[in-house]
Design a protein around this nucleic acid. Structure first.
Lengths: 194, 194
DNA sequence: TTATAATCTTTACAGTGTCAAGATGTTGGG
DNA sequence: CCCAACATCTTGACACTGTAAAGATTATAA
């Protein structure tokens, strides 16, 4: 195992962070391996010591962003210590959307090429490789169950909830969105009124 | 004006159709100008007689796909001649999602680079450059108005409706979606229960 | 210390978007 | 009918991309 500096410091992590920085500044369209290498001050082939291909670096970057996304969702859960009914779901939804409003480039970056596998079934043997959705499923399953919702309706409800916040995030991160009110409050209303 | 064959037939339209075919087969990631030119049997620089850049060809292809999308939405409206209450909205939503389930590559193609401008206000001076959303807004505005919904609530409701179907389309077109029931019926339920 | 392995550089190659110059066909005015 | 203007297409070139191979450099372990 080697996660420590060899020659040039911990180039692997540097590439990931510089890559994400590049995505934030220029968008996924302008991203290139050679640019990231140049930013890190190494030759254009150096990344191949840590990643087998451009896709592998992108995958590592996506995992990193997904971890930040998870933290934001977990913050929503922590902010509801009592976890009154569906309040925690609304908070999660709000944070879901706000994460992408605060980092608009992340939405197409995470979801456009989309190696994300989706499993909508609620039993534990059906897992998605996208942890945020698994978290949302788990919390929603518990909250809705405690609220007395029959298992039949739960799957549809959870899909609808996910679709709504996911769609809001997608729409809110398009170009030139004109909206006359405060997003954060508005999103909360929309999720509540579902 | 010249929409007729000059040298090589109507290369402009050929490029658009071949480009969309390529997107369908290999996805947006594998798309290249030179491939499309080769498919059409012309030299690699020939497209520059009809499009100023690769982006312009992609834009024309998006417009073409958007027209097909509009036809599908308009079919939903025509299929509800009585237009009973919200039935037409459910049909539109169902067709919205099914269009992308039937053509999974179209979703990232239309929405990833996303030159789409969004205007969520309901007065006519706020227009999106994405006709499907304008159509959905118009129909929803009329239907919900007839149902007696106050204008205050309409904006949120329409956004929520759009976000839900848009999110469903996004989720349904990810890789390896496992779902244990029939999409078409399920989508209808989800939209109804909103 | 020395051999082995990990890391990085250099060089090379095919594929990409785009531009400039020229070739080829089309059209309209004399 | 002819020729000039024009639209269309080809050829060649350039910079940039991802990636592979070979070699150089440095760390690790025996």
């Amino acid at each position: 195992m080697s996660n420590k500096p060899y020659h040039h410091g911990n180039l692997r992590n540097l590439l990931i962070e510089a890559g994400i920085e590049l995505i934030n500044q220029e968008g996924i369209k302008q991203f290139s391996l050679r640019k990231v290498a140049a930013i890190c001050g190494v030759s254009h082939a150096a990344p191949y010591s840590h990643f087998q291909s451009k896709e592998e670096l992108l995958k590592a970057m996506q995992d990193y962003v997904t971890e930040r996304f998870m933290e934001v969702l977990e913050n929503a859960i922590k902010s509801c210590p009592d976890q009154k009914e569906q309040k925690v779901l609304v908070e999660m939804g709000k944070n879901y959307v706000m994460f992408f409003i605060n980092n608009p480039q992340y939405f197409p970056f995470l979801f456009s090429q989309s190696s994300i596998e989706v499993n909508l079934s609620l039993n534990s043997d059906g897992r998605s490789n996208f942890p945020p959705f698994e978290l949302l499923k788990t919390i929603a399953f518990r909250v809705l169950g405690e609220a007395g919702m029959p298992k039949e309706k739960m799957q549809d409800t959870i899909i609808a909830l996910w679709a709504t916040v996911h769609g809001l995030a997608s729409i809110a991160t398009m170009k030139n969105v004109h909206y006359d009110k405060d997003w954060e409050a508005k999103i909360e209303d929309i999720i509540w009124n579902k």
